[in-house]
């Protein structure tokens, strides 16, 4: 297991997961969210290739109601 900061909270996740794996484990549709890894936005083309590392800061955002 590794420790990451996910949406502002410390969380333990399995080691060696790609960002895509992480989204799947969270039951999130990659087409409905945008991922920022250590303040860099990840395009959907690369989320299956990029691995989440110990200490990473991950933000998963989506569109909500707003004015």
């Amino acid at each position: 297991m590794i420790q990451v900061r996910l949406n502002g909270k410390d969380r333990e996740i399995e080691a060696d997961l790609t960002v895509m794996d992480l989204l799947e484990s969270l039951e999130l549709n990659p087409h409905m969210v945008v991922v920022e890894l250590n303040r860099e936005i990840l395009s959907r083309d690369v989320i299956a290739d990029v691995r989440v590392e110990e200490g990473d800061q991950v933000e998963v955002v989506h569109f909500v109601g707003g004015g």
Binding site: N7, M32, V33, V60, H62, F63, G65, G66
Partner: peptide
């Protein structure tokens, strides 16, 4: 139509983003 960008609430993953409606 305007929309806002916010963190997905991971403690309530069943909550849907606006794109499920719009």
């Amino acid at each position: 139509v305007t929309v806002a960008v916010r963190r997905v609430d991971l403690d309530r993953t069943k909550e849907e983003g606006i794109l499920h409606h719009l």
